[in-house]
């Protein structure tokens, strides 16, 4: 059962806890900073099993976890909520 997580890159402070707890090691720290100057986490969801550990340890509640069939559009990171411009375009 594949999973998908959505990271609010504006709210993420790049603490890296999700990176450290992800059993599948599918989360990395982005090289592009968000507006607050933090380098947020990002994932390409390949291999995510929606265990939710990343969301559970996230101090900023910036991760939402979904489970189900994923057709392989790689949604790298989207900014949900508010009108923050979408920083990272969908991967080609």
């Amino acid at each position: 059962m594949a999973g998908k997580i959505v990271i609010d890159t504006e709210r993420c402070k790049g603490c890296g806890l999700c990176v450290s707890v992800c059993p599948k090691k599918v989360i990395i720290i982005s090289r592009e900073s968000n507006r607050s100057g933090y380098f947020p986490a990002q994932t390409d969801d390949i291999g995510c099993i929606a265990c939710g550990h990343c969301a559970i340890v996230c101090p900023d509640g910036a991760i939402e976890v979904y489970q189900g069939e994923v057709d392989h559009i790689q949604i790298v990171a989207t900014s949900t909520k508010r009108n923050a411009p979408q920083l990272i375009e969908e991967k080609a």
Binding site: E10, C15, G16, S36, Y38, V57, C58, P59, D60, G61
Partner: peptide, 14 residues
């Protein structure tokens, strides 16, 4: 639904 002032990785947020 707002960011917190806590440091990155701070336990308060959790």
């Amino acid at each position: 639904d707002c960011p917190t002032h806590y440091c990155p990785g701070c336990g308060h947020g959790i």
